[in-house]
Simulated assay, not measured.
Amino acid sequence: MYRKPLNGLLFSFLLGSVPALALANAGHAHDHQTSHGHEHASPTRHAAVDRTIQVSMDDRMRFEPAYIEVKAGETVRFRVRNDGQLPHEMVIGTLDELQAHAEQMRDMSGMLHDEPNAVALDAGQQGDLLWHFSQPATLDFACLIAGHLEAGMKGSIEVR
Rank of each mutant, 00 (worst) to 15 (best):
M1T: 01
P5T: 05
N7A: 04
N7S: 11
L9M: 08
F11S: 00
F13C: 03
F13P: 00
F13W: 00
N25A: 13
A26G: 12
G27Q: 05
A29E: 15
H30N: 10
D31I: 03
H32E: 15
H32F: 14
H32P: 02
H36A: 10
H38G: 09
E39P: 15
E39G: 13
A41S: 14
S42G: 15
P43I: 03
T44A: 01
T44H: 02
H46I: 09
V49T: 06
T52W: 06
I53K: 02
I53Q: 02
I53N: 03
V55S: 01
V55N: 00
V55E: 03
D59P: 13
E64G: 14
P65Y: 05
A66V: 02
Y67F: 08
Y67K: 06
E69H: 08
K71R: 07
V76W: 10
V76H: 13
V76S: 07
V76M: 10
R81V: 05
D83I: 05
D83T: 13
G84N: 05
Q85W: 04
P87A: 12
P87D: 09
H88G: 13
M90P: 11
V91Q: 04
V91H: 06
T94Q: 10
L95E: 11
L98D: 12
L98E: 05
Q99E: 15
Q99G: 15
A100S: 14
H101G: 14
A102R: 01
Q104A: 11
M108A: 12
G110Q: 12
M111H: 01
L112W: 03
D114W: 04
D114E: 03
N117M: 07
V119H: 03
A120M: 03
D122A: 06
A123D: 01
G124F: 00
Q126E: 14
Q126W: 00
D128H: 05
L129C: 07
L129I: 07
H132C: 10
S134H: 00
Q135H: 11
Q135N: 08
P136K: 14
T138N: 04
G147S: 11
G147D: 05
E150C: 07
E150D: 14
E150Q: 07
A151C: 10
A151N: 14
G152F: 11
G152Y: 07
M153C: 15
M153G: 11
K154M: 13
K154G: 01
G155R: 10
E158Q: 11
